[in-house]
Simulated scan of single mutants.
Amino acid sequence: MTTELSEAVASEWYPVLLSKQLSDKPVSVTLLGQSLVVFRTSAGVHAFNDLCIHRGVPLSLGRVVDDRLVCAYHGWCYDGAGKCVSIPSLPAERAIPDKARATTYSCIEESCIVWVCPGTPALPYPSFFPYRNAEDKTVLMGPYELAAAGPRIVENFLDVSHLMFVHEGLLGDSRYSEIQDYRVNELDGVLRSDEIVVYQPDADGRGTSMHSHYVYEVYGPFTAAIIKRNPDNGERFHLFLMVQPMSEQLSRAFMLKARNYDKEASDDAFVAFQDTLIEQDRLMVENQKPELLPLDLQAELHLVCDRLSIAYRQRLRHWGVNFGTA
């Protein structure tokens, strides 16, 4: 997998599964065009190439027994480090071949999500983790499967000028569609926009209209966030987007919303609101042409309000991202 990916892509952590979806059975997932098997032992979570070295059967068809992943075809057993430790058909006096190993990937479990890094991790945790506020109330949203390239999904998330049309009546009003000029800066590897003010009839699903103050952040090729605040009462939330690029035109979007208000309130309304927004976005991102995000800035027309999209595409080119881009 990593031989065809740039370092910036290979060194990232990607969400692949909700923790609650991983119990005592292995699960097959797809990341960057590669089939992986994820499973749990007493030592934690693990990710292998979903292929037994013996006869090419998916290891996800097997089972976990005594902290070992057992292939369903011939019973070969792999430990958490990918080493084959038992071959039932092999005579006891014969040594297990050194080549009998599964291809392994770094795998961790954080924020009720299982994460996989296809290469050598740049950080011991996903890139957005340092920007979370531990005092905020956090709710997990999704995952949402979208027939779209990962970079298209991220760019849609960063696109402030679509709010007044795709999400009219909620996040915007087409009568107030003008976007003030703003700048995008880069600090410590994070792209960050100036604050952008947007009138919103329903800012977060509670039916409250206000002039929201937006700041956008980009942490990596497939990870971004919105900070939205109400200067009148100090309410703020941080909405993190993490995309699992399954194939170049199929992705899953995981979201974490961290808010500093209504901490005792039910999360249901906030989740339902985001579900609605995703379905509105789906029609756009699943029908964009070309399907892959063009990195040549001459391929599409850009305006001043697209400064963040321009900066994101330039950053993808700098990172050498060739998955989901053209």
Rank of each mutant, 00 (worst) to 15 (best):
N287A: 06
H167D: 06
E279C: 07
A311E: 06
I96Q: 15
V243Q: 13
H46R: 11
Y214A: 03
A272Q: 15
G62E: 11
I278T: 13
L293A: 06
V116Q: 09
I113R: 00
L301A: 01
R101V: 15
G150K: 04
S177L: 03
L295Q: 11
P245V: 08
G75C: 09
G56C: 15
S11Q: 07
C107W: 00
I227C: 02
L301N: 05
M246L: 07
L283N: 05
T120Y: 08
Y14L: 13
Q249E: 15
P15C: 12
F128S: 04
V116T: 11
C117W: 00
Q200W: 01
H46Q: 12
G220P: 05
L90W: 11
P143N: 08
S111K: 05
F323M: 05
I226Q: 13
Y219F: 09
L69D: 15
Y144V: 13
V271I: 11
V27I: 06
L22I: 04
L303M: 04
Y144Q: 13
V215F: 00
R252W: 09
D262A: 12
A203E: 14
D50Y: 05
G189T: 03
A8R: 13
F48V: 15
E178V: 02
L303P: 00
L170Q: 13
V27F: 11
G324L: 03
H167N: 07
Q21C: 04
L191P: 02
